[in-house]
Amino acid sequence: MSNLALELTRVAVAVAALGGSSAEFGGLSDAAVLAARGPIADLLRLSNTVAALLAGTIARRSRPELGQSGLAARYGLRNPTLMVQDATGLSRMEAGRLLAVGVLMNDTETAERRAADAAREAELAAQVAAEAVAEAVAEAEREAARAAARAAA
């Protein structure tokens, strides 16, 4: 399970422990009411993050180049915004914003993965180059030693 999923689970448990009715919340002390703001805000933030990840996935699987085989089209929806709206119950404008955030998150994650892959490849290339230089230096030293031995003889 990812860190996001673990954090979401932890926060959801903390919020659920607060209660599930007006009477239960009404029975909380002032300090508990004030303390509840943090976990509830965290839950909202994390659930919005998860919703954006879902929206980004819907967008990727509903790309225009996929045509009628795209996810939204296969379910009879004209575009991914309508699918996000249907999935979340948000207004069309809010669904569009969530979709834009999800696409940005997906693009950022993809770019970070590519950068990490490129860094690993560069590190490997540098290691191979360093080994080649070390071998070339060692061979040059051996050749110099052979030349010195021939000259001394």
Rank of each mutant, 00 (worst) to 15 (best):
M1I: 00
N3S: 07
L4M: 13
T9I: 07
T9P: 02
V11H: 01
A12W: 01
V13Y: 10
A16C: 03
G19F: 06
A23Y: 03
E24W: 08
F25Y: 15
F25W: 15
G26P: 11
L28N: 08
L28G: 10
L28F: 09
A32Y: 03
V33W: 12
A35H: 08
R37T: 14
R37Y: 11
G38K: 11
G38M: 06
G38D: 09
I40E: 07
D42V: 00
L44E: 13
R45W: 03
R45Y: 06
L46G: 02
A51M: 10
L53I: 08
L53F: 03
L54N: 03
A55C: 08
P64E: 08
L66P: 01
G67K: 07
Q68K: 05
Q68I: 11
Q68T: 12
S69P: 00
G70C: 06
G70M: 04
L71M: 13
A72S: 14
A73K: 07
R74V: 11
Y75C: 03
G76P: 03
L77G: 01
R78G: 01
N79I: 10
P80C: 11
P80G: 12
L82N: 10
M83G: 02
V84I: 08
V84P: 02
Q85Y: 01
S91F: 08
R92L: 09
M93H: 13
A95I: 08
G96P: 07
G96R: 10
R97M: 07
R97H: 11
R97A: 02
G102S: 03
V103W: 00
L104D: 10
M105H: 05
M105D: 04
N106F: 00
A111C: 05
E112Q: 04
E112Y: 00
R113D: 06
R114M: 03
A116L: 11
A116G: 02
A126G: 10
V128E: 14
A130K: 13
E131G: 12
E131F: 14
A132K: 15
A132T: 15
A132S: 15
A134S: 15
A134E: 15
E135A: 15
A136Y: 04
A138D: 11
E141I: 14
A147Q: 03
R150P: 04
A152Y: 01
